[in-house]
Simulated scan of single mutants.
Amino acid sequence: MDTISENKCFGGTQGVYSHASAATGGTMTFGLFLPEEAANGPVPVLIYLSGLTCTHENAMTKSGAQAFAAEQGIALVFPDTSPRGDGVADTDGFDMGLAASFYVDATQDPWKPHYQMETYITRDLMQALADFPLDMDRVSITGHSMGGHGALTLALKHPDMFRSVSAFSPICHPTASDWGQRQFEGYLGSDKSVWADHDATLLMRSNGYDKPVLVDQGTADQFYDKLNTGDFAAACADARADAQIRLQSGYDHSYFFIASFIADHVDFHAQALYA
């Protein structure tokens, strides 16, 4: 573990750290906010997965989440959105390759050697976090856009790992969206039955979910038609899931939207983490 930076923040510490990852075959970077309670013992954890084009820095610097996490005594983790470094495959577009991993374990070349992000988040990152005063039995997950897709799918696939899940404007049904079909074919191959394991709507339909779910979606989101929030809401209703799907009038896809409702999400997770 290498320390890149540490700054005092809302009585606690906002740090940035790097570590080796066997899953991605390189060095990964993440941000970690530790509230002041961490000085006295392990604290619960909320992981935030960012969206397309982002690094670990976007939510760390734009969401304002630290203020509300400090009030609740919760740590925040901000992972990177993809592997990086020499030899890591990329494309010219913004929606595949670097900063566009879709949080899947790729099975196809040239992505397979490094793009193992599901394993990174659920194994390597968790192992790295064990070096800090964190209660790894109390972990929840959230995210935005592609990261909202990641949060929902990882929670649905690993229900014993996370106590609750939330998302801002997530890609809810990627197998039926321009944000998903091309990427899944590239990362996972042409067998669409494999794609279903990485689609929150299909996972909810097939498996259900018995933990709390919160989704916020802006009605003025410029990417609304790519996100398919209604499909996920219908799947939650059919599964009788403990889910709140909220349409927020006039809000778009930006971090202004996230900053407007991040307090609600931190409070939502605090209820599950301290239950």
Rank of each mutant, 00 (worst) to 15 (best):
M1F: 09
M1A: 13
D2I: 03
G12E: 03
S21D: 04
A22Y: 07
T24C: 14
G25D: 10
G26D: 06
T29N: 13
F33T: 00
A38K: 07
V43R: 05
V45D: 05
V45Y: 08
Y48P: 05
H56P: 08
A59T: 06
K62D: 07
S63Q: 01
S63H: 00
F68D: 04
A75G: 05
L76P: 01
D86Q: 12
V88Q: 00
A89F: 01
A99F: 10
F102D: 09
F102E: 08
V104S: 12
T122F: 15
T122R: 12
L125T: 08
M126E: 12
L129P: 08
D137A: 10
S140Y: 08
G148C: 02
D160G: 14
S164L: 06
V165A: 14
F168R: 06
P174H: 06
S177V: 08
Y187G: 13
S193F: 08
M204T: 13
D216Q: 09
D221N: 11
F223G: 08
A234G: 07
A235W: 03
D238N: 12
R240C: 14
D242N: 14
I245D: 09
S249K: 15
S254I: 07
Y255L: 02
F257D: 02
I258A: 03
H265N: 10
H265V: 11
D267M: 10
